[in-house]
């Protein structure tokens, strides 16, 4: 039985991931749930699942959050470490697959490339202003074609001759797909074409100007799609490793980052799954910035503020909790 537990939460735009590890870094429990626009509910349900799967009575020694909802998640659960997704993915990969030189990560709303050398991130890039070619776009296309997202990759593998789809922009890709569908191309050829277009877009947009060295690790929710994996393999001509916990690597990474903090955790306990949380934004009239200051309350008591540029609210709060 483990002596200590560390939790990592990755609150993404599309999915919420929670991982529990022991002091040696072994994964004890994991949860992957759709965020569905309600991150608080998603975090609470995911923690409920984790609490059920963990051996009772083992103390949580550290908690960390990442993902676009990391600040809110940190206020909700009481996190010791709040880290960006790049550092989180790099940390997890360096622990699980130390030889990897390039990480390809495609999530719900953004895609990243991370280059590693001698255990250090040497370069990274994220998609700029457009979410074309990310998980939500794939999701939408699967839905439109009436194919479950989990079967999209298998379907692509069945293609005899993948058709060419414009991958530059989600709108163009969609109209291209509809055109191809109306001229009678088979569903599998269209889906395979979509996978290739997405990979082309990733390489020319996100990975622009970067030298991709092997071994390459492919992670994020989209790594479940074997069609995309195959398209990457043929485009890069490099071995691509999909790690066991490919879909929760960010959560795993921050769980590792929580380990050194063992001892005085700020974790509120699994009781937060039932907490009544309110988030309320108000425009501050203090100066010309007119920031929307967001107050986060649990059971009516203010836990944290964010969104103010001057720190009038957020800094006071940080001081009072002693960082």
């Amino acid at each position: 039985m483990p002596s200590k537990i560390f939790l990592g939460l990755d609150v993404g735009s599309v999915s919420t991931k929670v991982v529990a590890i022991d002091a040696l870094g072994h994964v004890l429990a994991r949860s992957y749930l759709p965020t569905q626009g309600q991150p608080i509910v998603a975090i609470q349900s995911a923690l409920r699942e984790i609490a059920r799967a963990l051996p009772p009575g083992v103390p949580v020694a550290g908690v960390a959050t990442t993902g676009s909802g990391r600040v809110m998640a940190s206020a909700l659960v009481g996190a010791d470490v709040v880290k960006n997704e790049i550092t989180a993915h790099a940390t997890a990969t360096l622990r699980v697959l130390p030889s990897v030189r390039t990480i390809i990560e495609i999530g719900g709303q953004d895609s990243k490339i991370i280059l590693l050398n001698h255990g250090v991130v040497t370069d990274f890039a994220m998609n700029t202003v457009c979410a074309a070619g990310t998980g939500s776009f794939l999701d939408r296309q699967a839905h439109r074609l009436g194919v479950p997202i989990t079967e999209l990759g298998e379907l692509a593998l069945k293609a005899a001759s993948p058709t060419r789809i414009a991958g530059r922009c989600a709108v163009f890709a969609e109209s291209d797909m509809i055109h191809k569908q109306q001229t009678g191309h088979s569903l599998s050829d269209i889906v395979a074409g979509l996978c290739e277009a997405l990979v082309r877009n990733y390489l020319s947009n996100v990975a622009k100007g970067k030298t991709i060295a092997g071994p390459v690790s492919f992670q994020g929710g989209v790594a479940a799609n074997v069609g995309i994996l195959k398209a990457f393999e043929s485009a890069l001509a490099l071995p691509i490793i999909v790690p066991e916990h490919y879909d929760v690597m960010g959560a795993l990474g921050v769980a590792y980052l929580a380990q050194p903090t063992a001892g005085q955790t700020r974790f509120r306990g699994f009781g937060v799954v039932a907490a009544d949380c309110q988030v309320k934004g108000e425009d501050c009239d203090g100066c010309g910035n007119r920031c929307e200051v967001v107050g986060f309350r649990i059971d009516g008591r203010v836990q944290a503020y964010w969104g103010d540029r001057c720190g009038k609210y957020s800094h006071v709060n940080y001081l009072s909790v002693g960082t």
């Binding site: 676009s68 880290k83 960006n84 997704e85 790049i86 550092t87 953004d110 250090v120 991130v121 040497t122 370069d123 990274f124 994220m126």
Partner: peptide, 12 residues
């Protein structure tokens, strides 16, 4: 998105 990129860049 901006904050994430900045934090990651500073870490790196």
């Amino acid at each position: 998105g901006l904050q994430t990129r900045l934090e990651a860049f500073v870490d790196m």
